[in-house]
């Protein structure tokens, strides 16, 4: 949890945790799998590749990979380029 953000001890802090995805803070339930997280964002898993805490995840891991607390997630895809 970010030390500089004060939050009251509420329902949320008990049952949710933070991760950072593409630089943005996201609150997710502990135990959330990557594939569910992506679908919730509206991202088709097969169009994206994922780096979690500097480690690149293989596509076959998406279904089983559980996002750890405070994970730094990078969702990347191909875009136009020369």
């Amino acid at each position: 949890m970010s030390p500089w953000v004060w939050r009251p001890a509420t329902f949320e802090t008990v049952f949710y945790m933070e991760i950072i995805c593409n630089g943005e803070v996201k609150n997710i339930q502990p135990g959330t799998k990557l594939v569910a997280f992506l679908e919730n964002l509206g991202v088709k898993p097969d169009t994206v590749f994922v780096e979690c805490d500097g480690v690149i995840l293989q596509k076959k891991e998406y279904d089983t990979f559980v996002l750890p607390e405070n994970a730094r997630l990078e969702l990347i895809r191909f875009v136009g380029g020369g």
Partner: peptide
Amino acid sequence: TVALRRIDLDNPEDDIMSVLDRKKYLFLPN
């Protein structure tokens, strides 16, 4: 050639590369 970028979380459907058949084009990521 294609580039790599973070997904725009506000516009996650924007996958322009999906129009290209990867069997027809070898992707050369830059």
